[in-house]
Design a protein around this nucleic acid. Structure first.
Lengths: 244, 244
DNA sequence: TAGTGGTCTAGACCACATG
DNA sequence: ATGTGGTCTAGACCACTAT
């Protein structure tokens, strides 16, 4: 049965089952890439019709938590960091080939959230956040300066870990260390003129135009997880988006 | 029955029904805003189970062709030109309110497609295209200069119609005059320095940074319909995108 | 061949909107 | 009260994957 499993009993059955399975997937009850029980099995253990199980799993699939293959089974999706969330702005070499930038964490501080961060992350006033300053490098040249804000409470595992061990990509880190999966994001682009400090960091002349990309990243439950601002020389920028 | 209605009989039933309904919606069998027959009725007329009808309609809903309201019915979605496809780049007044720009068609020519256009629109070499030059104005000030390319064959209705009657939005025009619906698009943003000609059109100083937005718009069948390049002063730009 | 997901059916009951 | 879509069930049959 589904009662007394911590799910909201007022929800439709298939959503209760979805929540239950999602929790177990997050808790790593089944390893990424491994199959979850079959429809028939789940239908048995939870005493619901197969159709209801299907609907729950279809929801999970739409959310990107599982993958199904006809005849094989339903599998916990491995984190795929080659997907759209990781190629917003590409760095291109002169001949147009994509480059993968290296990351350097310049600083990590625990601070009271600035007003914009509380708004973006939907935090209470004066909540604590982890503030990261990061530089992204291509061929040892800095190309992007980033300010990243994370709710201190949810990301407390990152407050202790050494920033040298963060690696080049943050989202896999969030998933590994904090169990938080970035499922979607909203980005806003504007063009500004560099401040003196940014110019120095990025090795740019004064008054060079820079693109500022502001991003709010959301978890699979729609809660905002991360707010970041990234700035880089406008002349090197290329940004692609699909609209539906 | 669903045979001999022009749909692919090898497809699952629910997809055949989806195609059939989609065709009828496009042919305006039911007016936008008006209800399509109920599940029970469709189930009767086409002799399929209600569950199959449901699945077909769910697909149509996911594609944005219909809207359902519990207890009321299923309705053909009105063309909503306030949706994401029409607010890629917003023009904002000083106080942050969105502005709706006026359009002026500066020229319309029938020309042989330039190389980039043949690539973007997947045309044969030397195919003819309609080339539109358009200015978008806010408060009588030009803010955006656009070059638009359309396959002459499919958009031949626009070759005759007076450009003064095109109106401020092109996509509703494409739909009205040519029966072509823009369903999705891919945009690429870059930052450039204005050319002398563009500077004059837009009333900008030399070497001002401009944002160039290149867009390929696709029909519901995935075929490219329109290729355009839009340029405007970078300082006034704000561009938002959702990533999933 | 056995087990999985994919399609399809038929029907019950519920929740919502409308007259 | 009626008709609509939303949930849920139970079971049949098909198509794909593995062994």
């Amino acid at each position: 049965m589904l009662d007394q499993t911590g799910v909201d009993a007022r929800l439709p059955l298939y959503l209760q089952l979805r929540d239950l399975l999602a929790t177990q997937i997050r808790a790593q009850k089944w390893q990424p890439g491994q199959p979850i029980p079959s429809e028939a099995e789940l239908s048995q253990t939870y005493q619901v019709a197969v159709g209801t199980v299907r609907r729950a799993i279809e929801t999970l699939m739409a959310e990107g938590l599982v993958e199904r293959t006809h005849g094989r089974g339903t599998f916990v999706r491995k984190a795929r960091f080659d997907n759209s969330l990781f190629r917003f702005f590409r760095f291109e070499s002169a001949d147009g080939r994509p480059l993968s930038p290296k990351s350097v964490i310049v600083s990590r501080k625990l601070v009271e959230a600035p007003a914009q961060a509380t708004a973006a992350l939907q935090l209470k006033p004066h909540a604590k956040v982890i503030e990261l300053h990061r530089l992204r490098m291509v061929d040892a040249q800095p190309v992007l300066a980033e300010n990243i804000y994370l709710c201190a409470q949810r990301f407390k595992a990152l407050a202790d870990k050494s920033p040298e061990q963060f690696g080049d990509l943050l989202y896999p880190l969030y998933e590994r260390e904090c169990g938080l999966i970035v499922a979607s994001a909203r980005e806003t682009l504007t063009v500004e003129t560099v401040t003196a400090a940014q110019a120095k960091l990025l090795g740019l002349k004064e008054k060079t135009p820079v693109v500022m990309i502001e991003r709010i990243a959301f978890g699979s439950d729609g809660q905002p997880l991360e707010w970041r601002q990234s700035r880089g020389a406008a002349s090197k920028f290329r940004y692609s988006a699909e609209i539906r």
